[in-house]
Design a protein around this nucleic acid. Structure first.
Length: 115
DNA sequence: TTGTTGACCTCTT
DNA sequence: CAAGAGGCCAACA
């Protein structure tokens, strides 16, 4: 798929990928950023998530975590515990701020969707 | 237009 | 081994 960054907003691009994340799976900002082609701009992905609050349909931002599998963005959800609760529904175990077997639930868009 | 910020990632000390 | 600083790109003021 040829992604034309200038054609659509960077956010829309990120939202699309995040919504493509299968249930019970999680990915990292860097993986999405790399899939978009920005690579090192993993921060932009997180920023897009910041706008995901008003975006519809709802974007499963709780499935997106940092490279360490730590719920870094949980503080930006409606409630600090919301992210963990949502992950719990996905059958994803979360120990404090860290996802258990993160690599096991890891979903790489580049690998799944293809680069 | 320029400067700052941002839910990150990686290297260096 | 642990902590700190820098760098990446894009949007917002």
């Amino acid at each position: 798929m040829n992604y034309t960054p200038k054609t659509k907003d960077f956010f829309q691009n990120v939202f699309d990928v995040v919504r493509l994340i299968p249930k019970g799976r999680v990915t990292s900002y860097g993986a999405i950023a790399k899939y978009l082609g920005t690579g090192g701009s993993s921060r932009m992905v997180g920023w897009a998530m910041n706008a995901s609050h008003d975006v519809k349909p709802k974007v499963p931002a709780h499935r997106v975590v940092n490279r360490n599998g730590m719920l870094s963005g949980k503080a930006h959800f409606a409630t600090p515990t919301l992210m963990q609760e949502l992950l719990a529904k996905e059958k994803i175990k979360v120990n404090n701020e860290n996802i258990v077997d993160f690599e096991k639930h890891f979903w790489d868009p580049v690998k799944e969707l293809g680069l």
